[in-house]
């Protein structure tokens, strides 16, 4: 084992290899690694951002949901109130109409009864006159006894 020219050649080869690594290998590999690190970091940051946005959106959705529910309830209440009001109004109208019809019928019935009563009284009066003249066997002068007859007819009618 002796030292010889091999050593010098090895030094040259070594120097060339160092230069090659320094010039071509190291910067490329390290550059790509840093690039990838940056991309991964960016991706993670984007993921975080997305997560935050998602959480925000979910919050908003919940808020909107609660609001919508409130609103629906309000609308429902309003509708119920309205329909009750309408029903009440209709009921009142119907009652008023009914009352009107009943009172009109009652009026008519009363006037009808009066008319019948008048007619009955008149017929009864003439019947009384006819009966009295039969009894007396003579003509009763209606004119002469009109006062009496009317009084009688009145009593009958009242009675």
């Amino acid at each position: 084992m002796n030292i010889n020219l091999t050593l010098v050649i090895q030094m040259v080869v070594f120097a060339l290899l160092i230069w090659f690594t320094m010039r071509f290998v190291w910067p490329l590999v390290l550059g790509a690694m840093h690039e990838r690190e940056k991309r991964i970091a960016d991706g993670l940051a984007a993921g975080d951002r997305g997560q935050r946005l998602l959480v925000n959106a979910q919050d908003q959705i919940e808020k909107m949901l609660i609001e919508a529910k409130d609103r629906a309830r309000q609308i429902e209440d309003q509708a119920a109130r309205r329909s009750n009001e309408a029903i009440d109004a209709a009921k009142q109208l119907a009652q008023a109409e009914g009352a009107r019809i009943v009172s009109a019928a009652r009026d008519e019935a009363a006037s009808e009864a009066n008319r019948a009563r008048d007619q009955l009284r008149k017929e009864f009066g003439s019947m009384v006159v006819v009966g009295a003249s039969r009894l007396l066997e003579r003509e009763v002068d209606a004119k002469t006894h009109a006062q009496l007859l009317d009084k009688l007819a009145d009593e009958v009618a009242r009675g």
Binding site: L17, F24, V25, L28, V29, G31, A32, R36
Partner: peptide, 16 residues
């Protein structure tokens, strides 16, 4: 060493 590492480095640079 030089060849394989250079190939990997080139690959890395192309795949950025």
């Amino acid at each position: 060493f030089g060849g394989s590492f250079y190939a990997a480095a080139r690959n890395a640079a192309r795949q950025r």
